[in-house]
Deep mutational scan, measured.
Amino acid sequence: QPDICKDYKETGFCGFGDSCKFLHD
């Protein structure tokens, strides 16, 4: 199970976008 993207979880934004290896839940 992939890890949750910390940036996306906390801020709702991730610089990696769809290529981020972490989950954007």
Rank of each mutant, 00 (worst) to 15 (best):
Q1A: 09
Q1N: 15
Q1E: 01
Q1H: 11
Q1I: 15
Q1S: 07
Q1G: 08
P2L: 15
P2M: 15
P2R: 15
P2E: 14
P2Y: 14
P2W: 14
P2V: 15
P2K: 15
P2H: 15
P2Q: 15
D3T: 07
D3Y: 05
D3F: 00
D3H: 05
D3M: 15
D3R: 05
D3S: 09
D3V: 04
D3K: 07
D3P: 06
D3W: 14
D3G: 09
I4P: 03
I4A: 05
I4E: 11
I4Q: 00
I4S: 07
I4M: 15
I4N: 06
I4T: 05
I4F: 08
I4G: 02
I4H: 03
C5R: 00
C5S: 01
C5G: 02
C5Q: 08
C5Y: 02
C5H: 00
C5K: 04
C5L: 00
C5A: 00
K6I: 01
K6E: 12
K6Y: 08
K6C: 10
K6A: 15
K6F: 06
K6M: 12
D7I: 11
D7R: 10
D7H: 08
D7F: 03
D7W: 03
D7C: 06
D7A: 13
D7G: 10
D7V: 13
Y8H: 09
Y8T: 05
Y8V: 05
Y8K: 07
Y8R: 04
Y8G: 10
Y8P: 06
K9R: 09
K9G: 11
K9L: 03
K9V: 13
K9H: 12
K9P: 01
K9T: 11
K9Q: 13
K9Y: 08
K9N: 08
E10K: 06
E10W: 01
E10L: 06
E10I: 06
E10M: 15
E10C: 06
E10H: 00
E10D: 05
E10T: 14
E10V: 02
T11C: 11
T11G: 12
T11S: 11
T11V: 10
T11F: 12
T11H: 13
T11I: 07
T11D: 14
T11Y: 12
T11E: 12
T11Q: 10
T11P: 06
G12D: 08
G12Y: 04
G12N: 09
G12S: 11
G12L: 04
G12R: 06
G12A: 11
G12K: 07
G12M: 14
F13K: 11
F13W: 00
F13C: 10
F13M: 14
F13N: 13
F13V: 11
F13S: 11
F13D: 08
F13L: 09
F13E: 08
F13R: 13
F13I: 11
C14W: 00
C14R: 04
C14Y: 03
C14A: 06
C14T: 04
C14V: 01
C14K: 04
C14F: 05
C14S: 04
C14L: 04
C14I: 06
C14M: 11
G15H: 05
G15M: 15
G15I: 10
G15T: 07
G15Y: 05
G15E: 10
G15R: 12
G15Q: 14
G15A: 09
G15N: 14
G15P: 09
G15W: 00
F16P: 09
F16E: 14
F16M: 15
F16D: 15
F16Y: 14
F16I: 00
F16G: 13
F16C: 04
G17N: 06
G17C: 01
G17D: 10
G17F: 05
G17K: 05
G17L: 02
G17R: 06
G17E: 09
G17T: 04
D18I: 03
D18Y: 01
D18Q: 03
D18H: 00
D18V: 03
D18A: 08
D18N: 12
D18F: 00
D18S: 08
S19G: 14
S19M: 15
S19D: 14
S19K: 06
S19A: 13
S19Y: 05
S19C: 07
S19W: 01
S19E: 12
C20W: 00
C20Y: 04
C20H: 01
C20R: 01
C20T: 02
C20G: 02
C20M: 06
C20L: 03
C20Q: 03
C20N: 00
K21N: 02
K21C: 01
K21M: 14
K21A: 08
K21P: 03
K21E: 05
K21I: 10
K21W: 08
K21R: 08
K21H: 10
K21Q: 03
F22Q: 06
F22V: 05
F22M: 15
F22D: 07
F22R: 10
F22S: 08
F22Y: 08
F22H: 04
L23S: 08
L23E: 06
L23W: 07
L23D: 09
L23F: 10
L23G: 11
L23P: 09
L23Y: 13
L23C: 09
L23I: 04
H24W: 00
H24C: 02
H24L: 02
H24D: 07
H24N: 06
H24I: 00
H24M: 10
H24T: 01
D25G: 03
D25Y: 03
D25A: 08
D25H: 02
D25C: 00
D25W: 00
